[in-house]
Design a protein around this nucleic acid. Structure first.
Lengths: 340, 340
DNA sequence: AGAAATTTTGCACACGAGAGCAAAATTCAT
DNA sequence: ATGAATTTTGCTCTCGTGTGCAAAATTTCT
């Protein structure tokens, strides 16, 4: 036996020490910790008892080194100003952990940082890389795919055109159609669309869908504007600027926002910068149903993505199951409140 | 030579393959990637070029297996309803990555989940475990310390009494004293303190400080109440319930909230449930200065912790530097807005 | 009970890099 | 140019676990 069997060699117990106590071989010890392993009930019990006594737990680094399965997934986030990120992170980490995977959180500080962020992920042998950023473009996705070891690249809650990518998101066209139908039905006739970063075409789904549907019905293409990040503060400034000097007749009767982060800033601007009322003077719609949206301050009419179901689909994919439905066509629901 | 030198054995390039291309030994290749290694300029260049060509990056799992340094820290979060968590996570991940460490994000689903959460951290050989949860009690800290492999346990943005723990936080007593002085100065005389989970004594610092200062000056101990999580929604409900049926004279003139998450809910309740104005009828103070606090809707008077400096101190500790000042006495600043 | 089928166990080797040391190459001094 | 000092390189062994197979133990069947 090569290794000493004394505990505390370097602070942590190894399988060898447990094996000595339990009177079995090291391999039996490790097997005891794998649910699918071929091991007798009796020796598993003895191992487990010895392990408990010594405070042994298998080392996941060593395990993944050999087995090429790390049970680690990287989650790359580029946009911490959007409260919806917190919701998604909570769901993802919870569901991934239930499925046996840990989460490596990588802060993608800016666009140029993307490849460095992906590098640290690949160096950790993650089983998959999940992008829940929103401001990155398709070229980031391409970089990610170029990185040698990135096994699976999953774009979460946003559509990606790249065919080598798995994109788990809801059907933006259907969702926006639902919202647009609702708006038209309510009689709004002069909307303004407030969009996020216009870096890539994938972002334009909601906007284009809305503008197309509207001009198909009314013949004229509504006005639109955008901000460089999904940040309420920026939305506030943009709305103040854009609508600031207008006379009553020139104002839109509705702001259709690409998501709630923008909608919240827009509402603040309407009230506190323009001095108008929501929804009486200008109505507002959002997307995501962040916790704030249900606050009596905002009572935002918005669209809720099935984040839990989406995260569960993600876990299923990591487990190797074939996706059951179309992963980029999840259906959410319109949440009607008082803002529109 | 044991291994084949063909690329793509299992999808990833190893140092052996780079060594073959560069015409050096495997060890020289690995040395090229360590800044402090003893290696000639010329061979490092050759190695780097070959590595670039093959797309090689060193495997951090294998590295940490041998070297006992993983450059991985676990961040345990138990409280995703509090928007301040997002701020702290952003700062921590950014600063840690700059310092060369990756972040393992662990969602501590509930109190009973704490030891399981700590287990996954220890199994990954993290260099340190950071608790930025708030609802856990001292017994969770004890569990963490009991876990064999947890090398360093750091409690971030909250004080811990446990001597085996490094607690990086601001001086709650000084901070609350600042707030209290401000309040007294402004002439409020009938405050209500709204606290978070009352699980452990560490949480009581702010509350006790406030109550003590107040009764020292005015002789009477102010009223207080609490909710079981730092969640605006719960704060909303509690404030509505507690103040709901009261006549004008029975109402407090100020709500002192343990943090902004509660303050935001409290403001909503004052306005939309009680139908009163902030600050004219009831004023509000918070703690943390979350992004929402500066929204024109809330304009919250609050206290900003120096999160960046605290995160940098954390990184310094991980790097092995001796802490320069008292880590549990960071100083923040009062942010005076219109809510009080 | 004895043979066959099945389960359980032990073992050599591999995963990819680091520590420590000895051999080789380079630089420096005389 | 020669020997000493220094730097660079290669090598063995190690970190802790998983794979695949062969030996051992157990169960099942006739």
């Amino acid at each position: 036996m090569a290794r000493s069997t004394e505990p505390g060699d370097r602070g942590n117990v190894t399988a060898d020490e447990v094996a000595a106590v339990a009177g079995v071989s090291r391999w039996t010890v490790n097997r005891a910790f794998r649910p699918d392993a071929s091991i007798s009930k009796r020796s598993r019990e003895r191992v487990m008892q010895a392990a408990q006594q010594l405070g042994y737990v298998p080392d996941l680094m060593a395990s993944s080194l050999r087995s090429d399965r790390s049970n680690l997934v990287a989650v790359l986030v580029d946009d911490f100003a959007n409260p919806h990120k917190l919701v998604m992170m909570e769901r993802l980490t919870r569901i991934l952990r239930k499925a046996g995977s840990d989460t490596l959180l990588v802060n993608m500080v800016d666009e140029s940082d993307a490849s460095a962020a992906l590098l640290s992920a690949s160096q950790r042998r993650v089983d998959a890389t999940i992008l829940i950023g929103s401001e990155f473009g398709e070229e980031v996705v391409a970089t990610a795919l170029g990185a040698q070891r990135a096994r699976k690249l999953i774009v979460f809650a946003r559509y990606s055109e790249n065919p080598n990518t798995i994109s788990i998101c809801c059907d933006d066209v259907a969702a926006m159609t639902t919202i647009t139908d609702f708006i038209m039905d309510r009689g709004y006739r002069n909307p303004l669309f407030l969009a996020g970063p216009q870096t890539v075409s994938a972002h334009l789904h909601r906007k284009e869908t809305f503008l197309d549907l509207w001009s198909a019905k009314f013949g004229s293409r509504p006005e639109s504007t955008w901000v460089r990040a999904y940040d309420p503060q920026l939305a506030y400034e943009r709305v103040s600027e854009t609508l600031g000097g207008r006379s009553r007749g020139e104002l839109p009767d509705l702001l259709v926002c690409e998501n709630d982060a923008l909608a919240v800033g827009a509402i603040d601007a309407i009230r506190f910068s323009l001095g108008l009322r929501v929804p009486e003077d200008i109505a507002v719609t959002g997307f995501d149903d962040v916790p704030q949206a249900s606050s009596p301050n905002y009572r935002l009419t918005t669209y809720r993505q099935p984040v839990t179901a989406m995260a569960e689909a993600l876990a299923a994919i990591l487990a190797g199951n074939e996706p059951s439905g179309d992963l980029s066509r999840f259906e959410g629901e319109l949440v009607v409140r008082e803002s529109a």
